[in-house]
Amino acid sequence: MSKFPKLIGGAALLASTAVLTTEALANGKLGLGREALPEEIAAWDVDIRPDGQGLPVGSGSVADGEMLFSDNCAACHGEFAEGVDNWPELAGGEGTLADEDPVKTVGSYWPYLSTAWDYVHRSMPYGSAQTLTDDEVYAIVAYILYSNFLVEDDFVLSNENFLDVEMPNADGFIIDDRAEAEYAQWRTEPCMSDCKDSVEITMRASVLNVTPEDEASADTGEAEVVQVAAAAEPAVDPALVEAGEKVFGKCKACHQVGEGAKNRSGPILNGILGADIASVDGFRYSKTLAEMDGVWTEEALAGFLADPRGYAKGTKMSFAGLKKEDDIAAVTAYLSTFE
């Protein structure tokens, strides 16, 4: 605080700043930061509370939700919200919470519907967050409720009836009671000798054999493959490939490349340049792409990547598109290194 008198003496300081600083200092404040503008708060403060606070005006039907879910969510969560591979199942599991393997879904486990709306709105679709309109979120949440048999097929969810929906496991939670249930009995002087009569091994990790082998060598292998492929294509600018690898980060949630790549929510992209459209074995394409003729030339790929849903209306790819031409060129160069 010793520099305060100097600040007042500084001729360049505006009077208003000096007043603000005086007030701030009186409260033990430093006068740092600036006031957040209402539109800035509105842009970021989107959380929805259990009592519905924060919900925007809007609505969406189960029927609309089914279409939207199929386009945006089903690749990971399944057409009926039943989950694909290791991705979360969103429906079913009622009455299983006390079972050996509880199935925790929005219907069987989530205590508040606000959580589902907030999460879909804020963090989904995975890899393309915050691209849904409010009405689309209402519709998708309505469909998730429907797939859990919590509403009928003609249901329309809105900010008005939001709190009428009853969540089956709303009363299934207790606040942390470890202090009473555990700490009291475990805060005792521990035994140091003759603590038990005998000791036997009852289970061994090696029986399951699920521990990963050392991946260090596997990683090296992959790196070599990339280098070899890059070397075989001298026409491709290595810097561009590197930039493209970064851009590809946006695609990685759904698409794999390289040795051992598998179809995930999107098809593998090895050798995509010059390949027939919708030709990866074992991948279930949207009708639109499946019926599209031609090959993925650089131009075709650029068109698709710039505006996936504009280029192929009905594509299951929920990605919003790459805005910058540089990014498209880079990711195309990167993809060209995978044969």
Partner: peptide, 11 residues
């Protein structure tokens, strides 16, 4: 989630 199917929160 505990054995009886209720779950602790805020742990």
């Amino acid at each position: 989630t505990l054995e009886d199917g209720t779950s602790r929160k805020w742990t």
